Amino acid sequence: MTPMTFVYLIAGLVLLVAGAEVLVRGAAKVAAQFGIPPLVIGLTVVAFGTSAPETAVSVQAALNNSGDLAIGNVIGSNIANVLLILGMTALVAPLIVSRQLIRLDVPIMIGASLVVYALAWDGGLSTLDGALLFTGVLAYTGFLIISSLRDKSAADDNDEFAKEFGLHQAPKPYAWLINLALIVAGLILLVSGSNLLVEGAVSLARALGLSELIIGLTVVAIGTSLPELATSIMAAIRGERDIAVGNIVGSNIFNLLCVLGLASLVSPLTISISPNALAFDFPVMIAVAVACLPIFFSGYRINRWEGLLFLAYYLAYTLYLVLFATGRPLAQAFGDAMLGYVLPLTVVTLAVIAGRAWHRQREPL
């Protein structure tokens, strides 16, 4: 393993984060100049922007026939988004969960997770599978746009978002050229960063004797989730706690439908799915998505103790990956204990908490 491996990894992550930020800024201002409401921009451009690193890395990995890296990046990012990022954000401040997330977006996230798992069950994601997933993200985005345009109560959110991105300001002459240049620069940074990160990750995996799936689930997944981490923590600090949660759920949906959809479409071969991913990582991702419902529903907030629970699970998941990668005999027993005892027990506990919260809400005042 050479020092250049770490240079590629660090430089790739820096370029990905910078590219996503520049792309979102430019695209938001261009969309505003065409009269698109700021809330719609937030639901589409910004949601895609925070998933741009995952998109760039997974597409590049698929083009390089590194399917395990592409799959591991998405699964690992979705798990890290909920357990690591929401856990850390909830420790900063208890998070508010909107009713729309419970009724619509979280069920869509769970449904998308199950659909991807079903498509991958035969051991691969084909071009047809990618087309189905990408059609799903188009339908989801269209629904968000139509719903937000009909929502007259979103004016305050529009104003806050517009102030953050400077969309209230009168456009300067030739401003569209500047914003278009930002979009192009952001795309160049994303492509360059993804190339460096994929090359560094593959080199690291080979040098350490690890599979590309493990590297994708850990190093690459955490690295490409940095935009979500920064967005959610800053939203929590600013008091926009519902945005912090919505950002994560929206990003996970985009990862499953858009990132995997595009990666499967551009891949010259069917993306093969590791049996280990099907047996353990996919079920963990689905369990994490399902666990959001009772936690979010119990008072429509995520308390600090629930954030700590998320973090504990992420540490346990990472520990399993380390044990498995190093060939420790405890890995199988640890994984069986997590899937067979700890996760079901937690689901039952959270279901009881959610049931009590639902019962309290139905009690007469």
Results as ranks from 00 to 15, higher is better:
A62N: 08
W176M: 15
V347A: 15
F282V: 10
L187F: 12
L226R: 01
S148C: 09
I102R: 10
E199N: 13
L43M: 14
R241M: 08
S267T: 12
L350E: 07
L311W: 02
L339Q: 08
F334A: 11
L323Y: 02
V14Y: 07
F143I: 11
D122S: 13
V259N: 00
N81I: 08
F297S: 10
A32V: 06
P364Y: 08
L256C: 09
L91I: 08
T346W: 07
A279Y: 10
A325L: 03
I75E: 04
T326L: 11
L213Q: 01
L125N: 04
A221Q: 00
G239S: 09
Q100W: 11
L83C: 08
A291V: 04
V284F: 01
I248W: 05
D151R: 13
A221R: 06
Y8F: 13
I75P: 04
S113W: 03
I146W: 12
Q169K: 14
D68P: 06
A175Y: 02
A230Y: 06
F161K: 01
T318H: 07
D129C: 10
L101D: 01
A154F: 09
A139P: 07
I215D: 00
I10D: 01
N255P: 02
E363M: 13
L180K: 03
L187P: 03
A230W: 05
L196Y: 05
M338V: 09
L365C: 11
E212A: 08
R328T: 12
V245I: 13
L128A: 13
V198A: 01
L345Y: 09
F297N: 05
V57Q: 03
V45A: 05
L190S: 04
L69E: 00
G307C: 02
Q100G: 12
T89S: 05
G335K: 03
G307T: 00
F48P: 02
F324L: 12
N158L: 07
T50G: 07
I215E: 03
L114F: 12
Y314G: 00
A357G: 05
L226I: 15
A28E: 00
G42S: 10
L365T: 14
E164A: 15
E160I: 13
G35M: 06
L132K: 06
T55D: 08
A18W: 10
G87R: 02
I85S: 00
L260P: 01
T218Q: 01
G261C: 12
T224F: 01
L91W: 00
D156S: 12
N65E: 14
F143A: 15
E240D: 14
L208S: 08
T127A: 12
E164R: 13
A61C: 11
A244Y: 02
T2N: 15
L321R: 06
W305L: 14
G72C: 03
N65S: 14
S66P: 04
G261I: 07
V259L: 08
A325H: 03
L260I: 08
G166Q: 08
P171Q: 09
L119F: 12
E363W: 11
L208H: 01
L350F: 12
G67I: 04
D157A: 13
N247A: 09
V22W: 03
K29M: 11
L309V: 09
A263F: 05
K163G: 07
Q100A: 12
V219S: 05
P107I: 10
P283Q: 11
I253D: 05
T55I: 14
W358G: 12
Y341F: 15
I295W: 01
L315A: 15
L39I: 14
F48D: 03
